[in-house]
Design a protein around this nucleic acid. Structure first.
Lengths: 218, 218
DNA sequence: ACCTGAACACCGTTCAAGT
DNA sequence: ACCTGAACACCGTTCAAGT
């Protein structure tokens, strides 16, 4: 982003920034440098601008994070609800949800803890899920708990995706953790990553379990 | 923490700090002020000390966070493994795991993303789980995936616990989210909180599902 | 309206100087 | 060894001044 002509003070003839451009650059930056080095200053550099210029388009850093979450939410696939059988709709949603966040792995912890009040597009995603499950005949009283339980699993799995691959590596202490070392070795023999394997396993269990709960056979 | 006599430079006759005291104060502080205002400076104030003094006991802020995670890990109950039937051991572990983190709700996002390499006590917790499941006859190749899947769910649930109770409140936009508003109302009629209900539901599903996977009846 | 420049109250961390 | 004081390179944010 270096259109390297210096810009002197005063309103430019054509504005260089807009909200969408800022959000895109912010996600790209957060993803590339990590949450520690993600700053308004660094974002300004990325956009070829001085930090205060950002405040004409976003209220503050927290509002920026909420906006970023909206962008991520938009790429979550809710198209299955009301069209496919609910199991398949739910699985499509879960996988794309995790992928959406894993495309911005460093964003998860920051974004997952921001309240969504006022974030219309994110709320829209939940509305789609709820509508789909209601249409499939789920009890009104059970939809919220089921959705949140599944979402907790998805978010936790996304969190697991941030962890370094050798997260569990005992290192020096391997002698004191023979069981852990053993199952780790068995796991590393498999094709798929620890995170992927655990996610698909848990998703299968969750969807089957919800099916049983809602009294519908296979 | 105001033993309010001013301390002049130089080594004090009796040291005022130690690692344990710092970790305890850090968790207490993080929990009370939230991650945003959690700083080395604020921690120093809490301990009645100047910021640089902390660096005699912890390498840096990241090492401090790892230490805090160790303390939290210590309160997770692994006593059931090898003693109780694995389902009950797993449930005890899961509930105490979530409670341990929910006692420090603001710590979850910060602590859950720190690698555990070298954190002996945290590794010890995982070793207990693995040993317990192996002793119960689980396949070596399946232990890791199952444990991580369940842990993802627990961590996600803990993350859900940080969210404000009105996290999903559509506010102004309620008209556009009739389904969500409806299931939210049905849920708020129940005794337990959204988070608690979703957790217990998911836990039941997870443990049942794992049981089925490992080919053991009810 | 939308940019820069200067300024404010903060950070985390290092290091010399004291006891 | 273990504290303070001073200093460094950073933060997020505000605001006046320019166009």
């Amino acid at each position: 982003m270096d259109s390297s002509e210096v810009r002197r003070a005063g309103r430019p003839r054509k504005s260089v920034l807009d909200r969408e451009k800022i959000l895109g650059a912010a996600l790209k930056l957060l993803n590339s440098v990590g949450p520690e080095k993600f700053s308004m200053a660094a974002l300004a550099v990325e956009l070829g601008v001085k930090p205060p210029a950002l405040y004409h388009h976003v209220k503050n850093k927290q509002a920026l994070l909420v906006g970023m979450r909206e962008v991520v939410s938009d790429s979550i696939d809710v198209s299955g609800f009301g069209v496919l059988p609910w199991r398949e709709a739910l699985e499509r949603w879960a996988r794309s949800y995790r992928v959406a966040f894993s495309a911005h792995p460093n964003a998860i912890a920051l974004l997952a803890t921001e309240p969504i009040t006022g974030a219309t597009r994110t709320l829209g995603m939940y509305e789609s899920v709820v509508q789909g499950l209601l249409a499939a005949g789920w009890e009104v009283s059970e939809v919220m708990g089921s959705m949140v339980a599944l979402e907790s699993f998805i978010l936790g799995s996304a969190l697991d995706l941030i962890a370094p691959v050798d997260m569990f590596d005992p290192g020096e202490a391997a002698v004191q953790t023979p069981g852990l070392s053993m199952v780790l070795e068995a796991q590393s023999a498999s094709d798929s990553s620890r995170a992927d394997e655990a996610f698909e396993l848990g998703l299968r269990i969750m969807v089957e379990g919800l099916g049983r709960l809602h009294g519908r056979g296979a």
